[in-house]
Design a protein around this nucleic acid. Structure first.
Lengths: 203, 203
DNA sequence: ACCTGAACACCGTTCAAGT
DNA sequence: ACCTGAACACCGTTCAAGT
């Protein structure tokens, strides 16, 4: 028996989905966590709950993701990837920057529970990480120098972040009940973008 | 013994501070919670921890404040009162609105742990509640009609909220490390205020 | 009215042990 | 390499019972 493994690693199957066997890895854990949060809210993201979801013991989750904090980080980063998938449209720099920002905002609002999780854990900037990247290239393409570009970038991120927080909270205040937050965000965003990004000829 | 109370309520003393006896009430619990968060951060605000702090059993906290959620609400509201204490200065409407907003921002940054607690629990709008009130009167005094006033108010709150979130998070990103967030906030705020509040003659 | 001890149903995390 | 049972040190909350 020497040299032979005592147990077979390769054919060892962990859990199944629709009867189809799947091997558990970090990606699967993160994907399942994202799914869980979307379905049942940020509070449902518990190491034990997630383990049950994956038909596995709790320490297994730790083996794959290290800790709850790392898991949350991975979930938010995965969501950030998704948010940046929609293409940037528009012909002028202003329009393209506005388009990128609006897409991220819309995506974040469409997946409230994930965005709430990001806010609660202080990782909302991770969620906007890809937007930062897009903004950099678009603002550079618009001809902004480093200093001006950084200023524009920061102002846009402040606006998006504030809009998200105010959009996601429960609204009982009379000031906000009848308010179209989507329009407010677009308007405020447009004002900020117009202020920082020069207009093209005939725009 | 009939008619006589079995125990003396009035002289029953709960806890002491510097050897001076104090009676525990809701206000004292909230004050102690605020103090605890400022000293040891939002994570330290635990019902059991707070009880130990007050030399009392845990259920006593519940008797006074109902639940952790209510306690947090009360803490944030207490902080909101404090933040609004500094007087609004300036002679023009623009200056006064800017002054009010900047005071709230500065106060929130100066007491980071409380502001973080507000963000984590989704009660950051409670923290800015008094600012909303000040803005209403200042914007009305500036001669803005209801619709325009609400618009200006919302835009300012979006800016402050976004600035706070970005100021309070840990900054490792090269875009933000060398950045004067106080200046950024003031500038962005000024742009928003100027956009919504008409200038006076000769301003 | 105000406070307590004890319990319930959860957490995140670790670790020796199994295959 | 990957997974588990069992434990540790916490949570928020409730409730019968005490004064």
């Amino acid at each position: 028996l020497l040299g032979q493994p005592v147990y077979d690693t390769v054919t060892d199957i962990v859990g199944e989905r629709n009867g189809q066997a799947v091997k558990l890895d970090r990606g699967a854990v993160v994907a399942s966590a994202l799914d869980l949060v979307l379905r049942e809210g940020p509070a449902a993201l518990t190491m034990r709950r997630l383990a049950t979801e994956l038909d596995v013991a709790t320490p297994t989750i730790y083996w794959h993701v290290g800790s709850r904090e790392e898991l949350v980080t991975a979930v938010i980063e995965a969501q950030a990837e998704r948010l940046a998938e929609r293409p940037v449209v528009g012909t002028t720099p202003r329009a393209r920057v506005l388009s990128a920002a609006r897409h991220i905002y819309a995506g974040a609002v469409a997946h409230r529970p994930i965005t709430s999780l990001a806010h609660q854990t202080g990782t909302s900037s991770l969620l906007l990480g890809r937007l930062e990247e897009v903004l950099v290239s678009e603002l550079e393409a618009a001809g902004l120098a480093d200093e001006a570009r950084a200023g524009a970038q920061r102002a846009i991120l402040v606006t998006i972040t504030g809009a998200l927080v105010l959009t996601l909270r429960e609204r009982t205040d009379p000031l906000w009940v009848g308010c179209d937050l989507d329009a407010l965000t677009t308007d405020t965003l447009r004002a900020v973008v117009d202020h920082h990004v020069p207009s093209e000829e005939g725009e």
